[in-house]
Write a protein that binds this DNA or RNA. Sequence first.
DNA 1: CACGGTTGCTTTAACGTATCAGTAACGGTC
DNA 2: GACCGTTACTGATACGTTAAAGCAACCGTG
Lengths: 334, 334
Amino acid sequence: MNIQRRVTAKDVARLAGVSQSTVSYVINNATNQSISERTKIKVRQAAEELNYTPSAAARTLRKGTSDTILIILRDAQIGELTAQAIEGIVRTLEPHGYSVVYRRQREGASALELCRELMPAAVASITALTRQEAYDIQRTGVPVVSTEFEDDNGEADNSIILSQTAIGRLHISYLHSKGHQHIAFAAPDIPNVEEYYARRLAGARDECTKLGIDAPPVVDIPFNLEGAISAAQEILALTPRVTAVSAYNDEVAAILLAALLRLDVKVPADIAVIGVDNLPLSPFTYPALTTVNIYAFEVGSGMGSLILRAIRPDLDIPLPAATSSIDLIERDST
Amino acid sequence: MNIQRRVTAKDVARLAGVSQSTVSYVINNATNQSISERTKIKVRQAAEELNYTPSAAARTLRKGTSDTILIILRDAQIGELTAQAIEGIVRTLEPHGYSVVYRRQREGASALELCRELMPAAVASITALTRQEAYDIQRTGVPVVSTEFEDDNGEADNSIILSQTAIGRLHISYLHSKGHQHIAFAAPDIPNVEEYYARRLAGARDECTKLGIDAPPVVDIPFNLEGAISAAQEILALTPRVTAVSAYNDEVAAILLAALLRLDVKVPADIAVIGVDNLPLSPFTYPALTTVNIYAFEVGSGMGSLILRAIRPDLDIPLPAATSSIDLIERDST
DNA sequence: CACGGTTGCTTTAACGTATCAGTAACGGTC
DNA sequence: GACCGTTACTGATACGTTAAAGCAACCGTG
């Protein structure tokens, strides 16, 4: 198995009987350099024959920017929804010839350093960057798109808002509209979600204040059936009597439903439960789980469009429609 | 917002009062070039002060290979397990300074072309490459690691076997050991999983033949409750009477369980159900779902180790332990 | 027929790094 | 003191591309 030498534009040029720069012009369909049709065909044939593929590294070095989109993730385990968002980004950008690099924030190494190293065409942050970091990166000329910078709701210019507080608010306002006055919050017992969790809870508290009802007591739900059963009993024993539970997500909600089913508590008659995420299995819990669907794929596509707008102004990509990226799905558990 | 010029090794050299090559030697801890401690410190300080980050593109161009690991995926939607496998690869390789690029196979563009373009240090294929493609890539000097090349079970040299047929076999042998003689196969009603599906079913048939029982009849399970209920009734009406169902995955299994619960059919007394994937919600179905856990994260880590072995022989990475990457989790549904 | 303008190329100079081939200085050896 | 070996550097070059600048040939125009 001998390793073959790389085919370069020079090789193509030699075969086609032209200069190397001509090859470059033809390959890139240069608009500010006219090339005769005859030559174009010759070059393309030669390239085909030699199986020529341009070197991304050389192009990047020369142009000062690569055809790479850097996705930066926070340091939590990547799950279904993150995967879907990435998928949305990828599907939007790959048809235009961009590759997606994805990186977790290494401790110590800053996102800015990563950018200087890889020279991406753009950066997409999935709740991973601070405002300052985003600003620093943009100063190097690399556009940054992110899922959310919640603190300024006004101009979400380069941001697809996926508001965690809005999710919390939606939970409460929905449950309140169904007549519930006393609502508990079921928290996850896992690490690395503190930020999401805190913001969803903050949204819920906010809405409670607005509606003039008590702030929800918080109960941790362990990720095993026995623990969950105790937690469920704890919730049922709360005073004043709680009639609904806003769960951090569908996982928590499903565990709670499983516990309540074992305790023979009727859902939603005795207590209502609502989740977040609309996982693939959520429609098939007992009873079927009411939840907040997050259009993660669409959020990803939206980010992709924003990126394209920034790096390819010539394409005239429209601003992604500012539809809400969340949606309440009413099933049987409320 | 003015865009600043890139800081290069030359700038660092100027500040430190040495040549650019010295900077390069210091930054890379060159072993075949001795540099005095004094100089090293000077250079490092200068680099620090200027916030120097080497250009990946220039390094790649010069060295002929990048610090990038290319993950190639098949064209199905990426889900929980794929995400976990990627996570395993990333966590193994990023500490060594590699970035992970991930790409779907674009139609038309071959994986080989992608490699010539990006010059990755290695390629990891998650059931995406044919043997021929893998071979072609390896001929260019880029190591390829993949999840499975099932056709030659003997030497799984650069492959972490995640055998789909073994999953099918495990289902049947387990159910048979629990006394089931008549087993049905519940198939998913979604696109893009044909290959997995076919191989799991093939494994199941295989095992049935070996055990001398009938090949499982196949029933499609629609992804909605009403459809699933009809499908469940269809299964219950089969002759000879089926006592267990091997489901394509946990999603299918959970839908079936939901349907059976509505039909008041007792699981596992009347019929047993087993799934594949061990999704986060699977322990919380009613009854809790027996399933095959796929150690996707560990598969990913194993791939990472194989890759490291190939590209960094100096590190003396041991071969990942050849433990099975699947595992039966017995719960209440069987 | 001298002129500017266009077409269709080629020459050349970067981009930022790694590394080979020097080389100067210095210490030790016979 | 001539020689060799080592240490600690520097200079120069190549990696493969893009794109500006240069240039020859041709065409139309006055």
